[in-house]
Amino acid sequence: MSRFTWFNATALTFGFAFLYLPMVILIVYSFNESRLVTVWAGFSTKWYGELFRNEQFLDAAWVTLRVAFFSATIATVLGTMAAYVLVRGGRFFGRTLFSGMIYAPLVMPEVITGLSLLLLFISINLDRGIFTIILAHTTFCMAYVSVVVSSRLVSFDRSVEEAALDLGATPFDAFRSVTLPIIMPAVVSGWLLGFTLSLDDLVIASFTAGPAATTLPIQIFSSVRLGVSPEINALSTILIGIVALGVVTASLISKRNLVRQARDARRAIQAGAEDAREARAT
Rank of each mutant, 00 (worst) to 15 (best):
A186L: 05
S116Y: 08
I182R: 14
F156G: 02
G42F: 10
D157W: 14
I232C: 13
L216R: 01
R225P: 02
P230K: 09
L58K: 02
G246H: 03
S2W: 15
L193R: 00
D166V: 14
F131Q: 05
V67D: 08
A72V: 05
E55L: 11
T113K: 05
P22V: 09
D166P: 11
I204K: 06
T132H: 05
R225L: 03
L239K: 04
L65G: 10
D264G: 00
D201T: 14
I74G: 04
P105N: 07
G94R: 06
L115Y: 02
V187T: 07
L197N: 00
Y48K: 03
V224C: 12
A61W: 05
R95Y: 11
T282P: 07
A205S: 11
G246D: 03
G194F: 00
A209E: 08
V188R: 08
S44F: 11
D264Y: 05
S229A: 11
T73P: 03
R277H: 04
L120S: 04
T139F: 15
L153F: 08
A268R: 03
S146E: 12
V149D: 00
F7S: 14
V148Q: 01
A213S: 15
P109R: 12
T196D: 15
I269A: 07
Q56F: 06
F70N: 08
G272S: 10
I238C: 11
R256M: 09
L239E: 01
T80V: 07
F195A: 13
L115A: 10
L235A: 00
V28S: 09
D200L: 13
P181R: 04
S44E: 09
S254M: 12
A68T: 13
R3N: 06
D166S: 14
S198C: 15
T64C: 04
R35F: 06
P230S: 14
S159H: 11
A169N: 06
P171M: 09
G114H: 02
G79W: 00
S99F: 07
F43D: 02
R53V: 12
D275G: 15
L19P: 09
F16Q: 12
G210Q: 13
G227V: 07
L258T: 13
L235Q: 01
G129L: 15
F93C: 11
A104P: 03
L106G: 05
G246C: 06
V228Q: 07
W62Y: 13
V224K: 10
A9R: 14
L58F: 00
S229G: 06
S222E: 15
A279N: 14
G79I: 00
L86I: 10
T170W: 10
A276T: 10
V39I: 12
S206T: 04
G168Y: 06
S198K: 12
N54Q: 08
S123N: 13
